[in-house]
C-alpha cells in the first residue's frame, strides 16, 4: 500500500519535472502567442522540435487532440471511426505551411472565423468551462508542436 503511494508520487514528480523542463526553455503561454493577420503563428510554442510519432498518438487520442472526431485521415487506418465535420486532412501539409498550421492548431478561430474547431492552445475567453478545465488549454504547448510535426508529414 505504502509502496504504491510512493510510486504514484514518484511518477507524478517525474511528470512535473518533465513539464517544467519543457516550460523553462521558451514556452510561450497561450495568451502571449502572436498571430499574424491571417491567423498564422510563426514562432514555435516551445522551441523544442516536435515529435511526429507522439503527435500521431495525440491526434487520435480522444481526450487530447481527438482530431479524428472531425477529420478523416487516411494515414491512420487502424482507427475505425473518422469524423467528417471538418475537411479530410489528407495532403494538408501541401495546402498550408508550418506557421499556418500552427495557427490553426493553436486557435483555429483566427484562421476560420466562427469555426466549430476547438482552440487547442487557449486559456481565456471561454464561457462556463467545467471547473476542472478552467484556465487550462486542451493541449500543452509541446503537444501542439508534436501534432504539428505529425500533420506536416501529411503530403499527397
Amino acid at each position: 500500500m505504502k509502496r504504491k503511494a510512493f510510486l504514484i508520487i514518484g511518477v507524478t514528480a517525474a511528470f512535473a519535472a518533465m513539464a517544467t523542463a519543457q516550460t523553462t526553455a521558451k514556452t510561450i503561454i497561450p495568451d502571449d502567442v502572436v498571430f499574424d493577420e491571417y491567423g498564422a503563428v510563426a514562432m514555435s510554442l516551445t522551441g523544442v522540435a516536435g515529435d511526429a510519432a507522439n503527435g500521431r498518438k495525440l491526434f487520435a487520442n480522444r481526450k487530447l487532440g481527438n482530431c479524428l472526431a472531425c477529420h478523416v485521415n487516411s494515414e491512420i487506418t487502424e482507427q475505425a471511426f473518422h469524423g467528417e465535420v471538418g475537411p479530410s486532412l489528407d495532403g494538408v501539409a501541401d495546402r498550408w505551411n508550418e506557421a499556418e498550421l500552427r495557427g490553426i492548431l493553436t486557435n483555429s478561430k483566427n484562421t476560420f472565423e466562427g469555426s466549430i474547431m476547438p482552440s487547442f492552445y487557449r486559456t481565456s475567453g471561454f464561457t462556463r468551462p467545467l471547473e476542472k478545465f478552467e484556465g487550462k488549454s486542451i493541449l500543452a504547448a509541446q503537444d501542439v508542436e508534436d501534432i504539428l510535426a505529425y500533420i506536416r508529414t501529411l503530403t499527397e
Binding site: R62, N66, L68, A69, C70, A80, F81, H82, G83, E84, V85, I116, P118, S119, F126, T127, R128, P129, L130, F133, K136, I138
Partner: peptide, 25 residues
Amino acid sequence: YQPVGQLDMACASCHEDNYNTYIRA
C-alpha cells in the same frame, strides 16, 4: 447559440450546422 465550455461549441454547432454528419463514431 452560445458557444460554451473548453471546446467552445454551441448546441447549434452540432445539431444545426452539422447534423447528418459523423463526429467520430
